[in-house]
């Protein structure tokens, strides 16, 4: 089967430490307000403790990427291995991909007046290295996987709190966070 890279996000292991997001900034030095990877706290409706469970998300490198489809200047292309690449020299900054992506992956770069997004560190991947966010994760909660062969049975594609867009078919798989048994104080 053809290789298809994606992110595996183990929210059960994730400690919401933002290391992945900062490692990305450290590698690419994006300007202020431009973040390729963001760590989203899961709301208390889903995980009852405030800011204690997270999804670390960047571009989901969808099988059918809306950014690619709606881009009028063909600034996006999908590589054989599934990585969705944005070519900035072609971008005219129309913002259509930013409006279109329900996962908020493309961001507007106010300096260059163009869009940009996570590249899955394809240069690093080509050089046999892990993407910087993956390498940085101290708890191995974030991994790059080949969806063609990935078959962990305990994973889901659309956990609660992650927008479901089957048409886009985002290349991500999640393990959802579990609750500890909580022994509360008797005196309050």
């Amino acid at each position: 089967m053809k290789k298809h890279y994606g992110f595996f996000i183990d929210a059960e292991r994730c400690i919401g430490c933002f290391t992945c997001a900062m490692a990305c900034k450290n590698q690419y030095h994006q300007p202020e307000t431009v973040v390729w990877r963001q760590v989203y706290p899961i709301s208390e409706e889903i995980y009852p403790y405030h800011e204690r469970a997270f999804y670390s998300l960047a571009c989901n490198h969808c099988e059918n990427p809306t950014c690619l489809n709606v881009c009028p200047v063909k600034a996006y292309y999908k590589r054989e291995d599934g990585i969705v690449v944005h070519e900035q020299d072609k971008c005219i900054g129309c913002g259509n991909c930013i409006r279109s992506c329900p996962y908020g992956a493309p961001r507007y770069n106010p300096e260059q007046k163009k869009a940009e997004k996570c590249s899955l560190c394809w240069q690093r991947v080509d050089a046999g290295l892990k993407p910087q966010c993956v390498q940085s994760c101290p708890v191995e909660a974030l991994q790059i996987v080949d969806l063609a062969t990935f078959d962990r049975p305990d994973t889901v594609q659309y956990p609660p709190g992650f927008p479901k867009h089957e048409k886009l078919n985002p290349s991500v798989r999640f393990v959802v966070p579990q609750l500890p048994k909580v022994i509360g104080r008797e005196d309050i």
Binding site: H29, P31, E111, Q112
Partner: peptide, 8 residues
């Protein structure tokens, strides 16, 4: 620089 710092 987009970065706003020196030596970039």
């Amino acid at each position: 620089d987009a970065q706003g710092l020196v030596m970039g």
